[in-house]
Design a protein around this nucleic acid. Structure first.
Lengths: 254, 254
DNA sequence: CGGCCGCTGTGACGATTCTCACAAAAAGAT
DNA sequence: ATCTTTTTGTGAGAATCGTCACAGCGGCCG
């Protein structure tokens, strides 16, 4: 148990070092005790940039806790068209449970930045959930939020054209990877235009034109390849963001 | 408890009467005992066509079990643009938990057909989850499936144009509301073109033209306003449906 | 240093999709 | 049955968006 406590301390330090507490971090949902129980079940794994935690179609049944690094969750199609579900960071959980016939991953998890991962077997987790009701309840709260994140994306990605989809994605990135600076909110996550396109469901060229358009209007700026949001409210207008009580930061994220 | 047992019997009968066991029905996930425990917490409610179980923005914190009827889950925007998340039927669960600051419904639940609903307070459910680990585990399995349903829609709605989105939606409707007939799969759920449009993120006119196009190609037929799918495989091609092991019926649904 | 490769930027064109306008048909209401 | 309302159908033009082609730029490696 001493081990677990140390790990918790570590994670708190990590959270402090991060520019902002942005994650859908399990820590928002679990108490330290609860998290410590989960941590006892983990075995560590290192994953290099470019590698995959798992592929779409692989057998599911593990939970991955991201201690550091970034991981992109992606659905692929034949034709080479991809859709990026999300990009996860320190403190996030990635999992698909084992259940019945369909215990297969429905997306792949590509490591974008070298990652340290804590891996838990679903079977072990199941026992934890079984024994500790408080843990299960919190876990479900977290799942419910994740579900709402997905659902809220539908409106943003489908209803206000590609500019709306991009604006929404920028806002979500600001909430998830944003760092407040003098000039505006700097998005610490650097993506290529193609990666943007895959998050939005559009083409690279459209992303390029839209970003340059926003830059010309002074809504964003780009320095060293990183996007700085100067006028968040303008972005909100583009995607018809509901006034903020209706859309909490927990949900408006990547 | 006798009451609960009777209710379980009732539900089994109801499932038998339904043309096909299509639901994301909680019964696929819960044993009879488990379901009975949930049922003990329910109080009954009738809801008329046109009424709402709740509105976007209302306080959350209840779970609704649909004994009969149909309920549309919808996200609205200013400008009157809507997006329909799903249309639920007998055996489905609708809920958003109470948690922290954001315990507010993120969609509204409109009753499409007179419904009988079992209502459970989240606080009561929490106690159940707390006490019965097996129940919690099953519940989480169900939640995980619901999450995958959402995620799989992203690919379908965003990557293959509006025809792809429509084709996917038809297939999902076939899996959820389909009845096998001599001519093909008949979709028992009748929707207006506007309602289709809201499921897909397109305009009524586009839906109209696309449906007529499919009819001319002999892929679907329409009788008494109900759609019959004659050539499911053609629809699959349009939305680049992954070969079926990759996309189980549990997930390919509305 | 030169060459290679991946990312960014841009124009032109065509396909897709939305919007508006209005007519016809069907479903409900009195 | 007649009137009203909702739904379906269709055309035309505009706006959006994707595709292709290719140029420049920058980093990386030998």
């Amino acid at each position: 148990m001493g081990d677990a406590v140390m790990a918790v301390a570590m994670k708190n330090k990590a959270a402090g070092e991060r520019q902002q507490d942005n994650g859908l971090g399990i820590h928002r949902f679990f108490s330290e005790d609860q998290f410590a129980r989960l941590e006892e079940l983990m075995y560590p794994k290192r994953a290099e940039k470019g590698s995959y935690l798992f592929w779409e179609g692989d057998a599911a049944g593990k939970l991955y806790y991201l201690r550091s690094g970034k991981v992109k969750l992606r659905k692929s199609t034949d034709e080479g068209k991809d859709f990026t579900l999300s990009i996860m960071q320190t403190g996030d959980l990635i999992w698909e449970p084992e259940h019945g016939l369909s215990s297969v991953h429905t997306f792949s998890a590509e490591v974008l930045e070298d990652a340290e991962v804590g891996v838990v077997q679903w079977k072990d987790l199941e026992i934890l959930l079984y024994r500790y009701g408080d843990f299960a309840v919190r876990f479900m709260n977290w799942m419910a939020i994740a579900q709402r994140v997905s659902e809220s994306k539908f409106r943003d990605l489908l209803l206000f054209g590609k500019p709306g989809a991009l604006a929404s994605t920028l806002i979500r990135m600001a909430n998830t990877y944003g760092v407040a600076t003098a000039e505006g909110i700097k998005i610490s996550l650097k993506l290529t235009h193609t990666e943007f396109a895959d998050l939005i469901g559009t083409s690279r060229e459209s992303v390029n034109r839209m970003l340059n358009g926003l830059k010309e209007e002074g809504i964003i700026d780009i320095r060293q390849g990183r996007i700085i949001i100067m006028e968040l409210n303008k972005l909100r207008e583009i995607c018809h963001c509901p006034t903020c009580p209706g859309c909490p930061k927990e949900i408006c994220r990547l």
